[in-house]
């Protein structure tokens, strides 16, 4: 095989090898985006550690475009949700990827995937608490 052909094959293999896991993530995402997140969030509350922690959990298990989290968080703040709660939700949404964890674990290592997502979750809660104090 010529060098270009070999390179093209290797590059294609880099895409096709994780394709089943990527498609698994896509299937899960398409179902998760059907969840009534706004209804769930109505029960979270407007502030405090528990509210921030719960919103970070919802953000962590949610997935999809960050724009969705900005719009959802912004709309909820308009309806009385605390800024710290919205921040923890947005930061967890964009930094924690529970749905993507199987793909992350398969390609970068299980331990790394678990530790990275756990640390990201703690940082999301911390950011929520700090922003609740700053923007109160």
């Amino acid at each position: 095989m010529k060098p270009l052909k070999k390179a093209m094959f290797r590059a294609l293999r880099s895409i096709t090898r994780p394709l089943p896991i990527i498609l698994t993530v896509v299937l899960a995402l398409s179902l998760i985006e059907c969840l009534p997140l706004k209804d769930i969030s109505q029960y979270i509350g407007s502030g405090g550690f528990v509210s921030i922690f719960l919103s970070a959990i919802i953000g962590a298990i949610s997935a999809g475009n960050a724009m969705t989290s900005y719009i959802l968080g912004g709309e909820l703040v308009k309806n009385g949700l605390g800024i710290g709660v919205a921040t923890a939700f947005i930061v967890a949404w964009v930094t924690v990827g529970i749905v993507q964890m199987p793909a992350e674990g398969t390609l970068l290592g299980k331990r790394f995937a678990i530790v990275r997502n756990a640390v990201s979750f703690v940082l999301a809660v911390t950011t929520g608490l700090i922003f609740a104090l700053i923007f109160w």
Binding site: E75, V77, V91, I130, F131, I134, F135
Partner: peptide, 18 residues
């Protein structure tokens, strides 16, 4: 989107924080 919903101060603060 961030600026529209949360304002400039928040958008800058969250970006630097991240």
């Amino acid at each position: 989107f961030l600026i529209a919903y949360f304002g400039w101060n928040y958008a800058i603060a969250i970006t630097i924080t991240i």
